[in-house]
Structure formats: C-alpha cells, structure tokens
C-alpha cells in the first residue's frame, strides 16, 4: 500500500465522501426537515440524535476525522486542476469545475457552521435547538449564506456520488453513467428542497 499512496489517498477520499460523510449529510438534512412540522418536532428529533450512545466518539469517527481528511485532500485536488471551460465547455467539464468550486464553498460554510453551532455549544454552552437556528437566520445575510452553503453541499454530494460510482468502477458504460447523472440529479433536487424548506421554517 505504501508504494501507491496516491492511489490509496484518492480512493479513501472518494470512499469517505459517501461513507460516512454523505450519509451524515442526508441524516442531517432529514433531521432538519422536522423543523417544517413544528419547533417541537425539530427539538425532539435533534434531542434524539444528541442522546445517541457514545455521541462524542461517533462525532469524531463518523464526522470530524473523515471530514477533515476529505477537506484537506480535496483542497489539494481542487488546486491541482487547471480548468479549461472556455475551450472545452462540455457538460461533464462544467460538473468537474463545479465539483471543485462547491467543495471550497462547502468547506468555508462548514467551518463557520461548526463554529457557530457545535463549538459555541462546547465552549459557551449555547443551547442547540430550534430557537438558536431561528436567531441565526433572522439576519438576511446569514439566511442567504446558509442557502448557498446548503445548495453547495448537496451539489457536491450528489455530483460526488456520480464520480464515486465511476471511480470504483461500478458504472462503466456511457449509458449507465448517463442514467446515473439523472439519478444523482434527483438526489440533488430532493435534498436541496429539504434543506431550503428547513431554512425557511427556521427563519420565518
């Protein structure tokens, strides 16, 4: 394994993006979506997650460590590319560029989001609940910052899932890759809808 470290890192990057980060993202958006029912429904769902056994362990193993690796190596990948959309404006080349752009946007968003919610809770003991999100999203700027962050994260996940299937050699033929484009487009639409609906429920 040591002799092809780059191969190992790349494959690990691809794997972690889906398991566990992608799964966590979906779970997070599903829990958030309870906000559209009522503040109580959201608080109950959030408390259920908070009270999972070994929570801090789960957070580190399933979220922080994989995310940190994925982010650091992803920034490296993004900056080794030299985009050439002006000369080669094909659909997949657009997706290639957007995957890197949304990765950077998502990273900026997540750093802020973790600071504002999880770290604020750990350091200042801020209560994490519906009201906290409502207070954050009262500001129009923050609301749109969150909208951009959520759309970027979901896009990065959906399109990343597409490349995951290619990277691991699951979709080989052009036809299967095309069908997968539509399937991941569906995932993008569904989770973007859920994310935005939750943000609106928190803010208004």
């Amino acid at each position: 394994m040591a002799e092809n470290r780059e191969f190992f890192n790349r494959r690990l990057h691809s794997l972690l993006g889906v398991f566990p980060i992608g799964l966590f993202l979906m779970q997070h958006l599903v829990v958030n979506h309870f906000a559209t029912y009522s503040p109580e429904a959201f608080n109950n769902a959030a408390h259920f997650m908070e009270n999972l056994p070994l929570r801090v362990f789960l957070e580190f193993v399933l979220i922080y460590i994989p995310l940190l690796f994925h982010a650091v190596y992803g920034v490296y990948i993004a900056f080794t590319a030299k985009n050439n959309l002006r000369r080669y404006g094909f659909f997949r080349n657009w997706m290639f560029m957007l995957q890197r752009a949304t990765g950077i946007i998502t990273l900026i968003f997540i750093v802020w989001h973790v600071w504002e919610t999880r770290l604020a809770h750990a350091i200042y003991g801020t209560e994490v609940n519906f009201d906290m999100m409502a207070t954050i999203l009262e500001s129009t700027f923050m609301f749109w910052f969150y909208v951009v962050g959520v759309v970027a994260a979901v896009f990065h996940f959906a399109n990343g899932l597409w490349s995951f299937f290619v990277t691991w050699g699951i979709t080989v033929t052009p036809r299967s890759q095309k069908v997968l484009t539509y399937a991941t487009l569906g995932i993008f639409i569904i989770f973007t809808y859920m994310g935005i609906a939750s943000l609106i429920a928190f803010a208004y």
Binding site: N93, F96, S163, W168, V172, P174, Q177
Partner: peptide
C-alpha cells in the same frame, strides 16, 4: 477527475472514459 473532455476531444473516437471506468473496476 472525470471531466470527460478526453473522450470528446479524441480525434479517433476512442472510448477513453469507458476505458478509464473499466480500469477503475479492475
């Protein structure tokens, strides 16, 4: 990085991205 420009640009119409995905499986 799956930009798939190669298969569009290849003057010989070689299914480069299919080769890449097949090698990924391999």
């Amino acid at each position: 990085g799956n930009s798939q420009n190669c298969v569009q640009a290849c003057p010989k119409g070689i299914p480069l991205t299919t080769s890449i995905a097949a090698l990924n499986r391999e």
